[in-house]
Design a protein around this nucleic acid. Sequence first.
DNA 1: TCCCGCGTTCTCTCTACTGT
DNA 2: ACAGTAGAGAGAACGCGGGA
Length: 334
Amino acid sequence: MRKLTGHNKSMSQDQTKKEALFNEVKGSLFEYLMARRLSQLAGNELKFLESLDKNYLNVLSQQDRMVRQFYPEMLTFLTQVSHDSANELVKFLGEVPHTPQLRGKFGTVNEADLMLESTKGIIPLSLKLNKKNSFVNTKSGGIKSFFVNYFSFIKPEIQQDFNRMVDQEFTRMSYELHALNDMEFNGDYANWVRSGKSELPGELSTEERGVLKSFYARIAVEMHRILLEAQTSHPTQFSASLPALMGFSTPEILQLVYFHDFKTQGHGSVSIHSYAEVQKWLKAATLLPFNQTSSVEMNLGDWALQIRVKPMNKFTTTAIKINCSVKFKQFEVS
DNA sequence: TCCCGCGTTCTCTCTACTGT
DNA sequence: ACAGTAGAGAGAACGCGGGA
């Protein structure tokens, strides 16, 4: 770990706090600015603004004030991002969509951030703001319902067995961690916490970290086995389950990703993907051999899908999440 | 009713690898 | 030897539902 002087340390903590705060508002401001820009292009901005929920406007104006005061550059950045994104979207659709509707925090639980109307019907639009070259986070589900939720053809008993295995392995990992510290594991982490040990994975020693990682790997290898078996026995249903993991829960959805690149200070690039692009590779989906990590990877032509086991903040609970992310291998040249 | 555990979403940081 | 990057890991925030 990098050594920091007292002064630098407090600076970096402040910076981290600031970043965390603004990350929170970044997404919702992007959604709003994008919808507003689209309504401008369609010539119905006033109607759009009137359609906004009072609660939403309250939250938004608070966020706006905060950003203007503490991080004014972000507003110009996000305005640029939404203008570029809107232009690319219009180019992609070949028309200006009408009546953008925000479905943010107060809308339905769906991956679509915006609902648009076009001559081809209603288009749900999912917006992402991502660092260039990184995987795009699509879904993250709880481990204890992952197969049931995303691969509904997999028998519930398989999920149940898997859950038992997760609990067992969690207990084993807990014994190992306690043994490493000459402590006794009594079914919970009360002793652990009382002795001042951290519950965050990032604060474990190298050896402890190793124990935790092999726990994740044991889960990942079992997931790999279940998925391979599912693909072999039910190839069609297996393929049909993949788009939802990749951010396409419905065939109509469009996924717009703005990739930013702070280093070169240049404009980012906009990628727009549809269900059809993913669909054409579904039959060719291949599970890569297990690689002794905490993730299972799949190849789908131009796409890579990564299914990763990760803790939910604290590792001292059996609650683990499964993180899905995708990458489109060819970047657009602009 | 209020807390806590679980699930969800999003984006950050760190590091090991790789090509020059 | 070193810089750039891909991928692994970290973690904040919040909704929801069930149990104390």
